[in-house]
């Protein structure tokens, strides 16, 4: 009997230690997630799925606008974050929104809209100066007297309404994102698009 226990003792000790150690193993794992779907880490702020869905909806909406799309000559558009304001309580990289919108619209419009790269102004200036100074040749495209002027520019605003129920720990945030295409000659707005969503979350009672 004594021998059996002597043999069992190290086994029991090993099992007990193993049991404790395996309670919560440290094996960090990385997984790709669908950017259009809600991720594993969630909050009530502006997230990737909101960006993807919103730009998709806005691109479809703009493509259906006759003023922009049925123009005899492709309208020139500046689509950047300069006049796109974040007045919300969510930290947002506005350029992610305007970059994605521009890229998707550029692709979908297939030449029916031309985008003016104001954000690359310095780059264009530098190349134009080099060409005119004879440092480089003129390239394959015809030279122009000036850089392209724009017909329209994107404006807009991100706003939020927050609500909190202190007793239950429930929290919600309503986002409204307004996009507007402003005629840079007349100030008219031939296209506006609104995208909104509301998220709510309940913090665990231990955080209330």
């Amino acid at each position: 009997m004594r021998m059996i226990f002597k043999m069992l003792l190290p086994v029991l000790a090993a099992v007990s230690l193993l049991g404790c150690a395996s309670g919560k193993g440290y094996t960090p794992s990385v997984q790709y997630e669908d950017t259009a779907e809600q991720g594993k880490v969630q909050g009530i702020g502006f997230e990737s799925q909101d960006l993807v869905r919103m730009t998709k909806a806005m691109v479809a909406d703009m493509l259906a606008n006759p003023v922009l799309m049925d123009s005899p000559r492709p309208p020139r558009v500046v689509m950047d974050s300069e006049y796109f304001y974040n007045e919300s309580s969510s930290r947002i990289d506005k350029r992610m929104i305007t970059d994605r919108l521009r890229a998707e619209l550029n692709k979908a419009a297939a030449g029916r809209i031309m985008f003016v790269a104001r954000n690359y102004g310095d780059m264009v200036d530098s190349e134009r100066a080099s060409k005119r100074a004879g440092e480089v040749d003129t390239g394959t495209l015809p030279m122009t007297r000036t850089k392209a002027g724009a017909d329209y520019r994107l404006g807009g605003r991100i706003s939020t309404i927050d609500a909190i129920a202190p007793k239950s720990g429930a929290q919600s945030r309503y986002h409204q994102i307004l996009f507007e295409m402003v005629d840079l000659e007349t100030g008219l707005i031939p296209w506006s698009g609104l995208y909104d969503f509301k998220k709510s979350a309940q913090h665990d009672v231990i955080y209330q």
């Binding site: 304001y85 974040n86 309580s89 969510s90 930290r91």
Partner: peptide, 10 residues
């Protein structure tokens, strides 16, 4: 200042 304001609001 826009994201700063978002932080203060939050």
């Amino acid at each position: 200042y826009e994201n700063a304001r978002a932080m203060f609001k939050s």
